[in-house]
């Protein structure tokens, strides 16, 4: 059995991974994007710089981006484990990682407008705990920057301006509109997490949980898989490109979930994740052995 302090240390390691090591599937997608862009174009130069940056961050174990974002934890834990302990360990890990410059002091109290200085505040980090039957703990973390968070959007269907009805075609129209409105401001090429259904809160949470899926992961539901592939293809025809410089690489992946909705409500929630798609996953046994998943 690990102590709360030992859990905190493990979680600092997960944060270090997320902040400094981009998952291989994301790096591969960025390389494919770079190779598709015209030699000498602004788009290609931007992707070259991005790939160089990824190497530097990885080699030096330093933050890929200075906006180390909101830490979003999803934890599966064995029966009987304290979620209060796990949540407190996540919060302490954020404070310690901030002290080590793995994270920027990224939490501001909106009442006093003071930066808390240690990266933690009510609601930061967010920690979702779910019990499962395994004796292991599995931690998934996303660091989601503020620039891309500002590009998120929530639609209610029907939407007359987009000619979007309450069906998958309507969902498609909303997501493509959100991608066009984001331009390069979310640090394109981005990854899109979306959810149709749910309420205003749960829809956004599910849209972010979708970002945990690796890029090659295909949706097991054929019609949603087709929707994901179609939006990926069409968004890359908009010529927004890396950083909004124009080009073929606007979106690296589209991941869509769905939740039950009320008869009166039909929300489409879209979360935009920057190219610095900082995911880390770790399976941790009771004796502290870590297996990295991302």
């Amino acid at each position: 059995m690990m102590s709360p302090q030992e859990w905190t240390q493990k979680l600092v390691e997960v944060i270090a991974h997320a902040s400094t090591q981009l998952p291989p599937d994301v790096v591969e997608a960025l390389k494919r994007g770079r190779d598709a862009e015209v030699e000498g174009s602004l788009a290609r130069k931007a992707l070259d710089s991005i790939l160089h940056n990824i190497e530097l961050a990885s080699g030096n174990w330093q933050p890929i981006c200075q906006d180390t974002g909101t830490p979003l934890f999803w934890i599966h834990h064995p029966i009987g484990m304290s979620t209060r302990m796990l949540t407190a360990a996540c919060e302490e890990a954020v404070r310690q990682a901030t002290g080590k410059q793995l994270l920027r002091p990224n939490a501001v109290d909106p009442l006093t407008e003071k930066n808390t200085g240690h990266g933690q505040a009510p609601g930061i980090p967010t920690v979702h705990c779910e019990e499962w039957d395994s004796p292991d703990v599995e931690v998934h973390l996303i660091l989601k920057g503020g620039g891309c968070e500002n590009c998120g959007a929530q639609y209610t269907l029907p939407n007359a301006a987009l000619k979007a009805d309450r069906n998958l075609e309507g969902v498609r129209r909303c997501i493509l509109d959100a991608i066009q409105k984001a331009q390069g401001k979310g640090c394109s090429p981005g990854v899109i997490g979306a959810c149709f259904g749910g309420d205003r809160g749960s829809g956004y949470v599910e849209s972010k949980r979708q970002l945990l899926r690796p890029l090659p992961d295909r949706n097991p539901i054929p019609e949603i898989d087709a929707l994901e592939q179609d939006i990926l293809e069409k968004s890359n025809q908009l010529d927004i490109g890396p950083m909004g410089f124009g080009g073929k690489t606007t979106v690296l992946g589209v991941k869509i979930g769905h939740l039950g909705r009320l008869p009166a409500c039909y929300f489409v929630s879209v979360s935009y994740m920057c190219w610095a798609n900082r995911r880390a996953g770790a399976r941790i046994t009771a004796d502290g052995t870590v297996t990295w998943l991302d």
Partner: peptide
């Protein structure tokens, strides 16, 4: 002047 977003290490150097 546009710097490439997210390239925090390249620019810090």
């Amino acid at each position: 002047l546009h710097a490439v977003g997210g390239t925090a290490q390249v620019l810090a150097q």
